[in-house]
Simulated scan of single mutants.
Amino acid sequence: MAMNRISKEKKEIKWIGLPTNSLQECHQLEKEMQKKIISIKEKEKQLDELILNQIALRI
């Protein structure tokens, strides 16, 4: 824990990991953000389709 590699909460021990290059971490975070943006856009399209289906069924 002193080297900031693991954390301990009560009886649960979690691996934090080894320190990484901040540039590598930035690139990784950008990739994750792009994946999440794509996922959100797909879910918005699905929601739009469901709303249209709901409206069509009510008419």
Rank of each mutant, 00 (worst) to 15 (best):
P19V: 12
L18G: 06
I38G: 05
L57W: 13
M1E: 08
M3H: 12
K8C: 06
C26H: 11
M1S: 14
R58N: 12
K45P: 01
L47Y: 08
W15D: 10
E49W: 05
I40G: 06
I37P: 04
K43H: 07
I37E: 10
Q24A: 13
A56D: 09
S22Y: 04
K41P: 01
K31C: 01
E49S: 14
I6D: 05
M33V: 09
L50D: 10
M1A: 11
R5L: 01
E32K: 15
K45S: 11
K10G: 00
Q46N: 11
K36Q: 02
N53S: 09
I59A: 07
I55R: 15
R5S: 03
S39Y: 12
P19Q: 08
E49R: 14
Q24M: 02
N53R: 10
I6T: 12
D48A: 15
K35W: 01
L23V: 07
I16S: 06
Q28E: 13
Q24D: 15
K31N: 07
L50N: 14
N4C: 05
Q54C: 06
K35P: 02
E32R: 15
K45H: 11
L47W: 02
K31Y: 03
E32G: 07
R5G: 05
N21A: 03
I51N: 11
S22E: 03
R5I: 00
K36T: 00
I40T: 11
E9A: 10
K31R: 12
S7Q: 04
K45V: 06
S22Q: 09
T20W: 06
E49I: 12
I16M: 09
W15P: 03
K31S: 10
I51A: 08
E32P: 03
I55Y: 08
N53W: 01
I51R: 15
K8M: 06
K8I: 07
I37Y: 05
E30C: 12
S7F: 06
Q24K: 15
R58A: 12
K11A: 10
H27G: 02
S7A: 09
I16W: 06
E9K: 10
K41T: 01
Q34F: 04
M1C: 12
K11V: 11
I51L: 12
N53T: 04
I38D: 15
K10W: 00
L47R: 10
K41E: 04
K43W: 02
N21I: 00
E49P: 02
M33A: 14
S7M: 07
L18I: 02
K14P: 01
K35N: 09
I59V: 04
E25T: 12
L52F: 06
K35F: 01
K8F: 04
K36D: 00
Q46G: 05
Q46P: 01
L52W: 02
R5E: 00
K31L: 02
K31H: 05
